[in-house]
Simulated scan of single mutants.
Amino acid sequence: MSLAISHLARRFGATEVLRGIELEVPQGELIALLGPSGSGKTTLLRIIAGLDWPDAGRLSFDGTDWLAKSAAERRIGFVFQHYALFPHMTMRDNIAFGLTVLPRAERPGKTQIAAVVDGLLQFLQIGGLADRYPAELSGGQRQRVALGRAMATQPRVLLLDEPFGALDAQVRRDLRRWLRGVHDSAGTTTIFVTHDQEEAFELADRVVVMNGGIIEQIGHPDQIYDHPATPFVARFLGLTVELPVTMHTGRACAAGLDLTGLPRRAIADGAATLFLRPADIRPVPEATAPFHVTEIASTGALLRIVAQDAAGCRIESEVPRRDGRDLAVGQAVSLRAAAGQIFPTGAPIGAVPAETPYTLKEARP
């Protein structure tokens, strides 16, 4: 069984929020929709849930047209950022709610509902808090209750909209590891929305990077991180240093830059743009190099080093503090790139760079 989305489009007035979305999610996979605010992530999630409707396109699950079914008929579990728990109900009653409002013909008996709730309380590791009210719980505990309520009806697909956005950093880290374990144990198809790159990469089997209503790239987290497919993905994932280079027989060249560590690219000779992460740039002392160190700042474990040439090209790099002991302000340095991505100059946002395909097993370790 899989969820299939084809040519999905949605507009609000003159604004195109989704523009021809194509996506297939196999049974049991955990997918992250990653992108900035306004990229269309939540709108896509709401359409899958049956809370909104597209202007064009198809949505099906296991071959069944979901656009012909109501939200209730799709059997979706939805977890919101702000929990949306009933404050007058205990944890136990909140989790049971979805079962108690099922049509009479489908509604389990009270004994069966109690058994399902007890099982979920133990599964979610909150059994000792069953009779507390939401106001008596921490944010992380409330989010576990919200997840339990979504899972109680045995949804075909579980949807999570920024599920950890209202929590502090340490609780988010703990809960996302816990959620991955819950997903693997339950085997439910799960789609979650986030703008947090670390969260998406740690949790998801595949990441769907969205921007301006389109999908820029889909792939395993490592594949996307190492091989961003478009300039937008490169910038969004931290390749914030952009340098003009010249391509010659598949190699990038630029004065003061050591780019021999980059693989050959199937890009035509001529002007191109190199995208680098500061952590992938290593300043190397070289008396005749055109760059000079202008700033050095310590963040504890790292040194932030800024180098500039006579033309005003300013490049920021990050190196482990112990590796930068020999550097000083005013020193001439060449800049060695350990990894980067290259696009022909003027490449449109959706242009995929030509390079040797990157292969990686989809299964998580």
Score class of each variant (00 low, 15 high):
A68E: 14
A68P: 05
A68L: 12
A68R: 15
K69Q: 15
K69I: 09
S70C: 08
S70Y: 11
A71D: 07
A71S: 14
A72E: 15
A72L: 15
A72M: 10
E73V: 13
R74K: 06
R74Y: 09
R75D: 15
R75M: 05
R75G: 07
R75F: 13
G77N: 00
G77H: 03
G77Q: 05
F78T: 02
F78H: 06
F80G: 03
Q81F: 03
Q81Y: 10
Q81A: 06
H82P: 09
H82L: 09
A84E: 07
L85W: 00
F86V: 06
F86C: 02
P87F: 12
P87A: 11
P87G: 14
P87D: 11
P87R: 09
M89E: 02
M89L: 15
M89S: 02
T90D: 04
T90V: 06
T90P: 08
M91S: 15
M91P: 04
M91C: 15
R92D: 01
I95L: 01
I95S: 00
I95G: 00
A96T: 01
A96H: 01
A96Q: 01
G98I: 04
G98Y: 04
T100V: 06
T100I: 01
T100M: 10
T100E: 11
V101W: 10
V101M: 13
V101R: 11
L102Y: 01
L102F: 12
L102I: 10
L102K: 15
L102N: 10
R104E: 08
A105V: 13
A105T: 13
E106Y: 10
E106P: 09
R107C: 05
R107T: 02
P108W: 09
P108T: 12
G109S: 05
G109I: 12
K110D: 12
K110W: 05
K110A: 14
T111Q: 10
Q112Y: 00
Q112F: 07
Q112A: 15
I113S: 07
I113K: 00
I113Y: 08
A114V: 04
A114H: 11
A115Y: 08
A115R: 13
V116R: 13
D118R: 09
D118Y: 03
G119V: 02
G119T: 04
G119R: 06
L120N: 01
L120T: 00
L121M: 09
Q122G: 14
Q122A: 07
F123M: 07
L124H: 01
Q125F: 05
Q125R: 15
I126S: 02
I126F: 08
G127Y: 09
G127S: 14
G127C: 13
G128C: 05
G128A: 14
G128N: 09
L129C: 04
L129I: 08
A130F: 10
A130E: 03
R132E: 02
R132I: 01
Y133R: 09
Y133V: 04
Y133E: 02
P134I: 07
P134F: 09
P134D: 05
P134Q: 08
A135N: 15
